[in-house]
Design a binder for these strands. Structure first.
Lengths: 206, 206
DNA sequence: ATGAACTTGTTAATTGATTAACAAAAAATA
DNA sequence: TATTTTTTGTTAATCAATTAACAAGTTCAT
């Protein structure tokens, strides 16, 4: 299928979670305006996204939940889940790990995490081990890990990033490491809450 | 001044942190292409943003750091900082609080947090107290708190949100509470990492 | 003093995302 | 049977964001 627009992919991921909930509630159908209002979107936008997905609804009942879910799962590359990891298993890392692991089946899975703090190395959380950063290259290659979530702040973060890229990481989600340098072709999403807070503050006051 | 485009505001917040670092390094000037490459942006975009900000650079040295910072600070409403709070002082709440508080002066400040867990109520972190959720309305009104960061997952989150809005909260940043209902005029930013992970996974595979 | 090398500031062009508009299908109602 | 209601699917129009293009100012080298 043709490459979907980034914003559509973002929304599809959100649809997926709403639909999963619908399924557990044994709701067999959903209208575009239901999906829209739950996620504060425009119904037209929802239908447009689903059209791009290649799914089709029903004039009377809306969209069939199981069908939609199947289509979304295929688009988001299940069953071949992408492997991700968390760099830094402090408070933030731990809470993210638990949150991500809360969905039973997921397009993105975490099976290993890393830290430099001896107290955390070789511990496990929900059965997922935390390894010494020095072993990251081999484990990342072996498990084909593609995404790294950075939850730590250290002066030598850049050296860590370079090692991770060399080991095969293709995308970073950066919570608090500050500005980092990455070559072209590597994805990066800045996730610093301070930006969001300041943006929202501006909106409220203007 | 005219209202700035949302994306420009977002970037300005990032410029601010880079500039603050430049200032501590006693670098008096910065070029648009420096700012751009540090944040993976286009230099033209940076100049456009700064133009909208109303600042002006110098043909030889670029932009004066102190001047730029002053202008950004004014735009992001310093010295009248916006008050924010964190709802749920678990691992995530604690790490966010410490991260946000790491900047000495900020357009957004946190002076109170809330929780429903008796173990956390009346503790303090970095001098910032955690209050019982039941006291939220009075404290939010008193301290004119406008933004709430939701770091918890509970079935009755909607009731909490309604109370917070009633107390004067105008913006929410939602980490993991799932879909929530808010009236028009209230700002909401979804911050669920699972969406970002799935989006990035899609990009890597397509 | 002249030209080369940079950089800013701004308008125009392009690209991307959202919203509006409406035909078509199906069922419910009169 | 005809009409109303509801919802999908899709094209067209609008709006927002990014990027391209380039004039103008400043310094440096020759």
């Amino acid at each position: 299928m043709a490459k979907l627009p980034p914003k559509t992919v973002e929304r599809i991921s959100q649809y997926r979670r709403v639909l999963a909930k619908y399924q557990t509630l044994s709701e067999p159908f959903i209208f575009s305006h239901d999906l829209a209002s739950l996620l504060h979107l425009n119904p037209v936008q929802v239908r447009r996204d689903l059209m791009l997905l290649g799914t089709t609804g029903n004039y009377r009942n809306g969209y069939k939940v199981t069908e939609l879910l199947k289509s979304i799962d295929e688009t988001l590359t299940i069953p071949k889940s992408t492997q991700a990891t968390i760099i830094g298993m402090g408070r933030l890392g731990e809470s993210l790990l638990k949150h991500i692991g809360s969905s039973p089946v997921c397009p993105v899975m975490i099976n290993s995490t890393f830290d430099i703090n001896p107290k955390r190395i070789n511990t496990t959380i929900r059965g997922i081990p935390c390894y010494d950063m020095t072993h990251a290259p081999e484990i990342i290659k072996e498990q084909k890990i593609k995404i790294a979530i950075l939850t730590l702040y250290t002066e030598d973060i850049q050296a860590i990033i370079d090692i991770l890229i060399d080991a095969g990481i293709e995308g970073f989600i950066n919570y608090m490491a500050g500005p980092i340098k990455i070559p072209k072709g590597i994805y990066l999403k800045e996730y610093d809450i301070r930006t969001t807070l300041e943006e929202m503050s501006y909106n409220i006051h203007n």
